[in-house]
């Protein structure tokens, strides 16, 4: 389109001319992007950790002490297998258990020699979907002969819960902050339009198309979004380090290196920022485009 250079210059210039409002818009949009980004990064990491743990999502079902005869045990096996969400079931006898202890404890075990085997019989089993952990455990408990359940996937389960929480809270935050960002950017652009209503009225009277009147303001919004996206991309790199050490403090896991995430985050931030900027601007523009001469000037 002809005159685009002029339009871009005008749009960029109004970001500066309107700098108080621009700074406020950028501040809000950066906060929005950072919170969104942080939630996404957390979620991505939790997912990767959960996957890692989920690879051996084995739980152990200990049987009541009095169940010792093969017949009773053989009944329980199929019962467990019937439970929803249970993938594999494997018997683990108390002899196997004690032998494992023995080899682990080595010489120390000699002290325990002669004592009757105190360990219960058990089953090792795995779940199909860890997120249905609670229901499955309840179902397993209901099986006759089951005493207690111990598992190593407790951490994974908690992380899955956390992941769900992060995703939910994150979505709400993104929606709320997205709306706030739209509002503040459209307000910023509206202020520019108001301060330039005189020029807009002249543009219309000399025959500028609505398209032409609109572009500088859309560019203003897009530039605000672009700047916010760039700032957020830089800040999130530092924020990520802080987040990783905070998470590591709670759970000792390996994080996804930021270098692996950086391109996605940067593109996402800048793209999202620019889209919010453009939409925010367009919200304000319609009103002015439908008015003529004196109406625009409020005369």
């Amino acid at each position: 389109m002809r005159g685009l250079g002029y339009l871009i210059k005008e749009g960029v210039r109004s970001v500066w001319n309107n700098r108080m409002m621009s700074a406020a818009s950028i501040g809000v949009l950066v906060s929005c992007l950072l919170i969104t980004g942080a939630a996404m990064l957390l979620s991505m990491n939790v997912t990767s950790v959960v996957e890692e743990i989920g690879k051996d999502n084995q739980i152990t079902v200990f049987l009541k002490e009095d169940i010792d005869d093969l017949e009773a045990i053989q009944k329980i096996g199929p019962e467990l297998r019937k439970v929803d969400n249970v993938a594999e079931v494997e018997f683990y006898s108390k002899e196997q258990a004690i032998n494992e202890y023995r080899s682990e404890l080595g010489t120390l075990f000699s002290e325990l020699q002669g004592v009757e085997n105190p360990l219960p019989n058990a089953f090792h089993l795995t779940m199909v979907d860890l997120s249905q952990y609670e229901t499955t455990v309840k179902d397993i408990r209901a099986v006759e002969g089951v005493d207690i359940i111990s598992d190593r996937s407790d951490v994974a389960k908690r992380l899955t819960d956390l992941n769900r929480l992060v995703t939910q809270v994150g979505l709400w935050l993104v929606a709320a902050l997205g709306i706030i960002s739209l509002f503040i950017i459209s307000n910023s652009v509206r202020m520019t339009m108001y301060s330039r209503r005189f020029e807009i009225s002249i543009m219309k009277s000399v025959g500028a198309t609505n398209h032409f009147v609109r572009i500088p303001f859309v560019i203003e919004g897009v530039v605000l979004g672009l700047i916010s996206g760039i700032i957020s991309s830089i800040v999130i790199a530092f924020l990520y380090e802080a987040m990783v050490s905070a998470v590591k403090y709670i759970v000792p896991v390996t994080e996804i290196p930021y270098s692996e995430l950086a391109p996605r985050m940067t593109v996402g931030f800048i793209g999202f920022g620019m889209i919010i900027g453009a939409i925010g601007a367009l919200i304000s523009i319609g009103r002015y485009l439908n008015m003529e001469g004196g109406e625009i000037l409020g005369w």
Binding site: R2, G3, M203
Partner: peptide, 24 residues
């Protein structure tokens, strides 16, 4: 008159051409 105060005389006149997409 409806002239734009912050623009020079030249730019005020040029404005009418620029906003309909005239070449510089």
């Amino acid at each position: 008159f409806r002239l734009i105060d912050k623009m020079t005389v030249f730019d005020n006149v040029a404005f009418a051409m620029r906003v309909i997409g005239a070449r510089p």
